[in-house]
Structures are given as C-alpha cells and as structure tokens.
C-alpha cells in the first residue's frame, strides 16, 4: 500500500478488458470490508450486515469508487445478504443456512492471505535494504557502419568475379599450386613504376582463377608487410593499391 495515487490501467490480456483500480488505501472490496469490520469492532462471525453494508456503500461513494465493478459487485452482494437475512425464518428450524457464511469464509481466507502479505512485505523490505554487486556487462562496441548489401548485390558480385575468370567450369579440376611469391613479384614491379595501381591493372581480363587468387593473397601479404595499402572507395568498386612509405624505404 505504498502508492500515493490511484492508477487506472487497462488489462491487456485475453480477458475482457476491465478497469483495474488500485487505491492507496484498499487493494480490493474485501480489504475495504475487513477494514470496516475492524473499525466497527464487530464480530466477523456475526456481521451486522445492514450496518456494514451501509458503511460500505457510503465509503465507496466518498472514495468515488462507484465505477469500480469489483466494489459494486460486493455492495450488491451485501445487499443481497441483507435481503436474505430479512426473510422470515421459522424458529427452531435446525438447518438454517446463514447467508453470511460464504462471505465469512471469504473474509477469513482473505485475511489469511494478508498475513502472508505482511510476511512477504517484511522479507522484501529486508532484501531491498541490501545491495548486491551491480555488475553491468560492458556493452559491446557498436559495429562499424555495416555493409548494407542485398543478396542480389552479393550474387552479382560473385557473378562478376566468375566472369572475369575465363573458364568458370568447375568439373575440370586440376590441382594447380597458387603462386603467391610470383604474384608479389609482379605487384612489386608494378608499384616500383607507379605509386598507385588498380586491381584491374594486376589481373587482366580473362585471368585464370589461380592467378586471381595468387594476386589477391599476394596483395594481402604485402599489405600486411606494409609495402602497400589497399583501398576500395565503395562496395564493388575497383580496388586501389597504393604504394606505402615502408615499401619505398625497402
């Protein structure tokens, strides 16, 4: 009962949408009823229904709860019990079902639950007052602007590579050693003449796949050694190879 203000919420699950009203003072009609019984100091097993019902109706009016179906339903129930009590009953008749019995059972059940609530409230408060280690896992660094490519663009790129290679037929596999040192020599020779070169300068149209691979691996190796830098202005653009200072010094 810690909320300072009532709040209204719409139930969002499958059940018919209902107002859920929770008040600072009362968590439901049974709570209000129990409070009244305590305030009026009456015996829970012998509730003066007329008095309690009148109090109940008065209270929900002052609390402006008269729109809350749960409270109205309880008010109606009380009035019904009151009406049943007014019905004449023959004295001496043994089995008289007290119309209040069901209400008493519910009130007791509710009160039992409230005791458990007290236990939980104390336990929760105890835990609330002690902090655990507040370890917050470090957020992973945001990835650098991702390549926004569609599948069709990717396939088109593969297609371009395969078209550069003269014979993409793959049923005729002949193991052929990739000549990385040879490719490096070619790239070095080219860079000795020109400070900048392009991928298409290194790999002629119609090159064999092993030549493409050799050149690629050689280029990566040289970039790793710092002999050249490799740049691509945008996805799928011609790769530029720039002679690096380290390469010149070598």
């Amino acid at each position: 009962m810690t909320e300072t203000a009532a709040y209204v919420d719409y139930a969002t699950d499958a059940a018919p949408a209902a107002f859920v009203i929770e008040l600072a003072e009362f968590s439901g009609p049974l709570d209000l009823l129990l409070t009244l019984i305590r305030e009026e100091q009456v015996d829970i097993y012998d509730i003066p229904i007329a008095r309690i019902a009148a109090q109940f109706v008065l209270r929900i009016r002052t609390l402006q709860l008269n729109e809350a179906a749960d409270y109205l339903e309880m008010a109606a129930r009380l009035l019904r019990i009151k009406a049943q009590m007014l019905l004449p009953r023959t004295d001496g008749e043994e089995a008289w079902d007290d119309p209040r019995a069901e209400l008493v059972r519910r009130l007791l059940e509710y009160q039992q639950m409230r005791e458990v609530v007290d236990v939980l409230e104390r336990a929760g408060e105890d835990r609330r007052n002690r902090f655990a280690r507040a370890y917050i896992p470090q957020a992973p660094a945001p990835p650098e602007a991702p390549l926004a490519l569609s599948l069709s663009e990717l396939l088109a790129a593969v297609d371009r590579i395969l078209r550069i290679a003269r014979d993409p037929a793959i049923h005729d596999v002949i193991p052929r050693a990739i000549d990385v040192p040879g490719a490096i020599t070619i790239i070095r020779e080219l860079l000795a003449i020109r400070a900048r070169a392009r991928w298409t300068d290194l790999v002629p149209y119609g090159a064999e796949p092993w030549q493409v691979l050799s050149t690629l691996l050689g280029l990566l190796e040289m970039a790793k050694l710092g002999e050249c830098r490799v740049a691509q202005p945008r996805p799928f653009a011609n790769v530029e190879i720039i002679r690096d200072a380290a390469g010149e010094a070598a």
Partner: peptide, 26 residues
C-alpha cells in the same frame, strides 16, 4: 504473490475469487 506462493500451481480465477478483484494486469 502471497496466494501463488502458498497455493501454487494456481490459476487466475482462484486468485480473483480470493482477492475479489480482477488480476490480469497484476
């Protein structure tokens, strides 16, 4: 929570019956 802790497994209808209010959003 008190009701669920003591009577679990417990359905929504039983909780509403004892608490006297609808408990969907809770």
């Amino acid at each position: 929570l008190a009701l669920i802790a003591y009577r679990q497994p417990l359905g929504r209808a039983e909780i509403e019956e004892i608490r006297g209010v609808s408990v969907g959003s809770v």
